[in-house]
Each structure stands twice: as structure tokens, then as C-alpha cells.
């Protein structure tokens, strides 16, 4: 999530590719794109991982477009109902949607970045309560079974499948602490003394 050098999550989020458009010819580097061309031509497009894209963008050798996980379609879906969007499906590989979004946000210009920040925060807040509700539900159940509190059955299942990596972490944290507290409330520790 954070741009911490030691954070595995940050490293994984940096592996996401964004679509870049080269602004100038780069001779003899065509093989890097995987094609048969000898040079990378200006205005050619290629998906570049973020860790490499930084240098290209800051040196003004390329432009990038907002990646599809944050595109208009996803935005509209999130506006309609944050809980029905499968964030993990959008980015693949463990699904660090928020981490990826944060990185994009950092390289965007001010206005777009603010918009992006709003999008991320709104999605997070909209989904948080459901994440915790379901975590508590599962902690209370202590096992399998479907049905959250505000949405139920299949939609709850698909919501869980669509959790982002950070949300998964929260889910586990909530579940663990609820379980621990519940165990304490229910145990009678007369025998312990």
C-alpha cells in the first residue's frame, strides 16, 4: 500500500502494467516490447510495468492513459453500488486495487489525482462496513455458511471473492479480534484459577 521500500504489497502493486504511448523514437530497443520491430517508434503503444513507467513518464519520453481498472466503466459501477464491484478481478494477482490506484494517483496531475483520491476513498468507505459485517458474521459462525447482514447468500459470497488485498487483510483482522473477544466472553475460567 504505502511506498515503503520493504513492503511486499507495494512491490506487487508496482508490477501492474499501464498503457504508455511513446513520444519519441527509441532506436534498437524494439526487442524489449517483444515485437519484431527494430526500433520503438514514436506514438507506438506498449503496456509498461509501473516501476519502469516512472522513469519514462518523468523524463517525458512517454504518456500514459488511466488504466482500465479505474476507467469510466468501473467508476460508474462504483458510483452505482460499491459493494457489487469485484475489485480483485480488476487487477489480478492478489488484487492490490487500492495500492495500484495510489500509485497512479501519485503520478497524475493535481486535478485528476484529487478525483482519483475521491474515487478510492468513496469505494473504500462504501465497502468497509460490509467487509467488517461479514467478518463478524463468520467469526460468530466459526466456520462455513453464507449470508451477511445487509446483503445475503450469493451476493455475499461474490462480494468476498471480490475483496481487494487490503480489504482481505482487514477482514482477517476483524475476524480474529471478534473471535478472540467472543472466546473470552463465553469462556468460564473458574477452572483456570
Amino acid at each position: 500500500m504505502d511506498n515503503d521500500y520493504f513492503s511486499i504489497d507495494a512491490i506487487l502493486a508496482e508490477n501492474q502494467k499501464i498503457q504508455c504511448t511513446f513520444k519519441l523514437d527509441i532506436p534498437d530497443m524494439g526487442h524489449l516490447g517483444g515485437g519484431n520491430e527494430r526500433d520503438i517508434k514514436a506514438l507506438s503503444k506498449a503496456p509498461i510495468p509501473i516501476w519502469l513507467a516512472y522513469i519514462l513518464l518523468y523524463s517525458d519520453w512517454a504518456d500514459f492513459s488511466i488504466p482500465q481498472p479505474f476507467g469510466a466503466r468501473v467508476r460508474n459501477a462504483l458510483n452505482a453500488e460499491p459493494k457489487s464491484v469485484k475489485l480483485s478481478g480488476l487487477v489480478g494477482q492478489g488484487g492490490h486495487w487500492y495500492g495500484f490506484g495510489k500509485m497512479i494517483m501519485d503520478i497524475l496531475s493535481d486535478e485528476q489525482a484529487n478525483e482519483m483520491s475521491e474515487l478510492l476513498i468513496k469505494a473504500f468507505k462504501g465497502r468497509l462496513v460490509e467487509v467488517i459485517d461479514q467478518a463478524q458474521h463468520f467469526a460468530a459462525l466459526g466456520g462455513s455458511g453464507g449470508g451477511g447482514s445487509s446483503i445475503s447468500g450469493d451476493s455475499a459470497l461474490s462480494f468476498r471473492e471480490g475483496l481487494d488485498g487490503a480489504e482481505r487483510e482487514l477482514f482477517a483482522l476483524a475476524q480474529e479480534s471478534v473471535k478472540m473477544t467472543k472466546r473470552w466472553y463465553e469462556g468460564n475460567d473458574r477452572a483456570r484459577r
Binding site: Y98, K102, S117, I121, F124, L128, A166, L173, T181
Partner: peptide
């Protein structure tokens, strides 16, 4: 407090990552 602490701390930490503070905006 103890029961909700882990969740609140973690999610507030995440939110503070996502929020763009005015001073950051000026610096960008």
C-alpha cells in the same frame, strides 16, 4: 476499544494513504 482497535487502526492507516492532503497538493 480492544475489539475494534485492529480494524480501525488499519483502515484509518489505509485511508490516510488514499487522502490527498492540501500540503501534498501544493507540493506536487
Amino acid at each position: 476499544i480492544n475489539e475494534i482497535r485492529p480494524v480501525f487502526v488499519q483502515s484509518m492507516g489505509l485511508l490516510s494513504q488514499l487522502v490527498r492532503e492540501p500540503e501534498n497538493r501544493a507540493g506536487d
